[in-house]
Structure formats: structure tokens, C-alpha cells
């Protein structure tokens, strides 16, 4: 088996690991680092539940090799809370019915964090378009959009 040594900063911690060249980033996070907050759903780039941040930009970790993360910074859902205090986006999803079964939630939250970094005051239309890489089978999206509006407001300091 062809192996490669990679160095990746995940949620602020540097990991040096030897991985098979064909290891997907999603599998590396879940099976090697045991960060199981990142989900595997379709594994074909459609559902978005595997979304993570690389150097602050949201990507689908099922479409990327772990070796491609070498030398980069990855943030997963586990990296958002600080000292047990939820990130404002997480808190908003809890308070505004942004989830039911929760399987899609880590992906929606990572996408939202990136969206609000780029655009702190999105319109409802921008929120909906910004979510078109994420699928939710439970909520009907209304609670998710409400959560994002509330999170945006909180992050803007209102």
C-alpha cells in the first residue's frame, strides 16, 4: 500500500500521520483522528454533511484526499466551541429549531460559519443560496434559516 506522511493542523492541534494515499479527508478525520462530528452521507459530493473548513473556506471532505490537506489548517464541528461554550452558530441552531435528527447539522453549521465570515449580514435569499450544497431531510429548512438569521445578528453584536 502506498503511504504518505502528512502534517495537518486540525482544530488548532498539529497532527503528523502516515496515511494511505487513497485515504479521503472525511475518513482521516473520523477513523484516524476519531473526530466523528464530521458525517459521511452520500459520499458523492451532494449532501454536504461532511463539510469542514480548510484555511477558513468550506469544502466537502468526501471529495478531497487527506494528502491534499497536508500543510493546511482544518476546522471541524469539534473545533467551534471554546472551553465548553458553544459557538454562536451552534447556539442559534439549538435555540431556533435548526435541527431534528441532527445528522446534517455539523455540515450546515460549518457552511454557516464560512458564510457569515464572508457576509456578516446576509439576506434570506443569500442564506438560502449559500446553503445549496447542504441537504436536510428533516427540518424543511425553515428552522435552519431562522437559526442563521439569529446567529448573524448575534455575531454582528446586536
Amino acid at each position: 500500500m502506498s503511504k504518505k506522511t502528512i502534517e495537518v493542523v486540525v482544530n488548532g492541534r498539529t497532527h503528523r500521520a502516515e496515511v494511505p494515499a487513497r485515504r479521503m479527508l472525511s475518513d482521516f478525520l473520523r477513523d484516524d483522528l476519531f473526530l466523528t462530528g464530521t458525517k459521511r452521507g452520500c459520499e458523492t459530493g451532494v449532501c454536504g454533511c461532511c463539510s469542514v473548513l480548510i484555511d477558513g473556506e468550506v469544502i466537502k471532505s468526501c471529495l478531497s484526499l487527506a494528502v491534499h490537506a497536508d500543510g493546511h489548517e482544518v476546522t471541524t464541528i469539534e473545533g467551534l466551541a471554546v472551553d465548553g461554550v458553544l459557538h454562536p452558530v451552534q447556539e442559534a441552531f439549538v435555540n431556533h429549531g435548526g435541527l431534528q435528527c441532527g445528522y446534517c447539522t455539523p455540515g450546515f453549521i460549518m457552511t454557516t460559519v464560512a458564510m457569515l465570515n464572508d457576509n456578516p449580514n446576509p439576506t434570506e435569499d443569500e442564506i438560502r443560496h449559500g446553503l445549496n450544497g447542504n441537504l436536510c431531510r428533516c427540518t424543511g429548512y425553515v428552522g435552519i434559516v431562522e437559526s442563521i438569521k439569529a446567529a448573524a445578528e448575534k455575531l454582528r453584536g446586536n
Binding site: G45, S51, I54, V58, I59, L63, A114, G130, G133, N134
Partner: peptide
């Protein structure tokens, strides 16, 4: 095109 994730990849 596509969605935010695919545009970043």
C-alpha cells in the same frame, strides 16, 4: 455554479 463547497474545491 454548483454550491459554495464545490466552488472552493
Amino acid at each position: 455554479l454548483a454550491n459554495p463547497q464545490v466552488r472552493n474545491q
